[in-house]
């Protein structure tokens, strides 16, 4: 109990500067809008955005649900593709030489320009958005996993071999656990860009989702609604990121803190 309260106090201490800064910025925003008498459609003050958030919560959460579904489906597919590609790259030199350069080169193509093509090929339903999310997220997953799997030292592999381990056992019991801290770092990057991916996909062609709602509300000068959608998107992104950090903390609970990346990227 004391530990729990202590943890809460520590968390409050860690987060309070950021929260106070954000509150101050919001206050300044509010004040400037009122003081300069800026038009609502040009820049709505935070109180109006908050009002919009409450008034349209049903609409916003319905579209947020669709965006979240695209993100989760895309992330899941990306995980499968990423693990398969990274394993292949680490396992065989031929795979590495033939695939890895193409994967890296593919990242120089602006994915935003691929989205219209995907709409033409796949249509405006959810799958085009899932594909855009996959395109955005598989790269950090593959790179982090390849780096992690490569960080296994040869002496440990030898130790496993002298214990009579098969290649599959070495992969499962040595290489995967060694790669986990790196992999989680990649997942944290991937989950954040997955939100961007889903919004871009919706922007180009969709009939639902927060990106679509923003695209629709802009030209109608429903600026407060655009801001409210941004707030909801941020909440979605922060929630997903926190979920990954929680899974990471649990998965790496036995790792010494020097190997635990959570401290560097997750909180503090």
């Amino acid at each position: 109990m004391i530990n729990y309260l202590g943890g809460m106090w520590q968390a409050a201490k860690n987060w309070s500067p950021a929260i106070l800064t954000a509150l101050a910025l919001i206050l300044i925003w509010e004040f400037v809008v009122w003081f300069l008498d800026i038009q609502r459609w040009l820049l709505p003050p935070p109180t109006i955005i908050f009002q919009e958030l409450i008034d349209s919560i049903g609409l916003l959460s319905r579209h947020a649900g669709i965006t979240l579904l695209e993100i989760i489906m895309g992330f899941a597919v990306s995980l499968m593709i990423g693990v398969a590609l990274a394993s292949g790259i680490v396992w065989s030199r031929t795979m590495e030489r033939s695939i890895y350069p193409i994967i890296i080169a593919s990242q120089t193509i602006p994915i935003f320009t691929l989205a219209p093509l995907l709409i033409i090929w796949v249509g405006t339903d959810i799958f085009s958005k899932v594909i855009v999310v996959v395109l955005f997220t598989f790269f950090p997953l593959v790179v982090s996993l390849v780096t992690g799997l490569r960080s296994v030292d040869s002496e440990s592999v030898d130790m496993f071999r002298t214990l009579g381990a098969t290649n599959a056992q070495i992969f499962r019991k040595l290489m995967i656990p060694t790669a986990l801290p790196n992999f989680f770092a990649g997942m944290k990057v991937a989950v954040v860009v997955s939100v961007i991916g889903a919004v871009i996909g919706e922007w180009v062609g969709a009939s639902a989702g927060l990106g679509w709602l923003m695209k629709l509300s802009g030209p109608q000068f429903q600026t407060a609604r655009v801001f409210a959608a941004i707030v909801v998107l941020s909440v979605v992104a922060i929630t997903l990121f926190s979920a990954i950090v929680a899974i990471e903390k649990w998965s790496l609970r036995k790792y010494p803190s020097s190997l635990n990346q959570a401290k560097n990227l997750g909180e503090s």
Binding site: E155, M159, L174, P256, L259
Partner: peptide, 9 residues
């Protein structure tokens, strides 16, 4: 081997 190579996890 020379190093203990204990798995840290």
């Amino acid at each position: 081997q020379q190093r203990d190579l204990l798995l840290p996890w």
